[in-house]
Amino acid sequence: MAMPDPVQEPLRDVIARHGLDARKALGQHFLLDPGITARIAALAGDLTGRHVVEVGPGPGGLTRSLLATPATSVTAVEIDRRAVAVIEELVAHFPDRLRLVEADATRRDLTELCPAPRQIVANLPYNVGTPLLVGWLRQAASWERLTLMFQMEVGERICAAPDTDHYGRLAVLAQWTCQASLVMRIPPGAFSPPPKVYSAVVSLIPHATQPEPALFRAMEQVTAAAFGQRRKMLRGSLRAIGGEALLGEAGIAGERRAETLSIAEFDRLARCHAARTT
């Protein structure tokens, strides 16, 4: 019997044929609407000449939409053996543009998979989205843009402004290194199985100047301390890494709380902390 066309076969049929039921342990929620996946691919901008990495392609809906763009190449990183079999069928159809890497994206340096200019476009597994993002922010200079789908709450945390409920460590790290925008909201019914919450696509465009690794580590330490006890005044929450002395060097009042600080003020704290620890 002839194999179905890997580009035209309905994704529900692909899922049924490969026994690709979404697994909670892998944080899987599959997007089946080609109109939505095409919109996500379009949010990455003009992909002409770009090399795109997709993490967690699942049944390949977003992969198909990325292959419909002018991207020079698409590299799909997948850990689920059932989904690997699906993407292998697409690779056979697009041998010159699609590459499959069977790997755990949390343990792999994705910059090694393709040359620049490179982007990441992905519907991230819910259970590893945040650690993946922080890892990519550490190497933001290597990426032209990240177009990523998260649970709505995570998307709001990434893009939150100071002195708002969602503002925290993730907002500081993301906005310190990138221009962050929440560019699309997607209802639960667009997924199989439907999650309990809305999802959000976030666009992250790295700033032209990026912190050195030592400064990024200092920012991670400062934000972890500051937001780890966010109800405390900064003189208390930062005590373990310098407290009053660090705040004095940065010109920030000790009675303030972490959520009131701007990105620029966190930058000053991180630079002062880095200078004290190197």
Results as ranks from 00 to 15, higher is better:
1 M>F: 13
3 M>F: 14
5 D>R: 09
7 V>A: 11
9 E>N: 07
10 P>A: 08
11 L>S: 09
11 L>F: 07
13 D>I: 12
14 V>R: 14
15 I>G: 10
15 I>R: 04
16 A>K: 11
20 L>V: 08
22 A>H: 10
28 Q>S: 07
29 H>N: 15
37 T>Q: 09
41 A>G: 13
44 A>M: 06
46 D>Q: 03
46 D>Y: 07
48 T>C: 13
48 T>P: 02
55 V>W: 04
55 V>K: 09
57 P>H: 11
66 L>W: 04
67 L>S: 06
72 T>C: 07
72 T>K: 15
73 S>P: 01
77 V>R: 07
77 V>P: 03
82 R>I: 01
82 R>Y: 00
84 V>I: 08
85 A>Q: 12
86 V>G: 13
89 E>K: 15
92 A>M: 12
98 L>A: 14
101 V>S: 04
106 T>D: 05
112 E>L: 12
113 L>T: 10
115 P>L: 03
116 A>Y: 10
116 A>E: 13
121 V>M: 07
121 V>G: 01
122 A>N: 05
123 N>G: 15
128 V>W: 02
129 G>V: 03
130 T>C: 02
132 L>H: 05
133 L>G: 06
133 L>R: 03
134 V>D: 00
135 G>W: 12
136 W>F: 11
143 W>G: 06
146 L>K: 05
147 T>K: 01
154 V>D: 05
155 G>K: 02
158 I>V: 06
158 I>P: 11
161 A>F: 06
163 D>R: 15
166 H>P: 08
167 Y>M: 15
171 A>S: 15
171 A>R: 00
171 A>Y: 07
172 V>D: 10
174 A>G: 01
177 T>S: 14
177 T>E: 05
181 S>F: 00
184 M>F: 07
188 P>Q: 13
189 G>N: 04
194 P>T: 13
194 P>S: 03
194 P>G: 02
196 K>F: 03
202 V>T: 00
202 V>E: 02
217 R>Y: 04
219 M>C: 11
220 E>L: 13
224 A>M: 09
225 A>R: 09
233 M>S: 08
234 L>C: 14
234 L>K: 09
234 L>R: 11
241 I>M: 14
244 E>W: 12
244 E>M: 07
255 E>S: 13
255 E>M: 13
262 S>N: 01
264 A>V: 12
264 A>W: 03
266 F>N: 12
266 F>Y: 14
268 R>M: 02
269 L>N: 04
270 A>C: 01
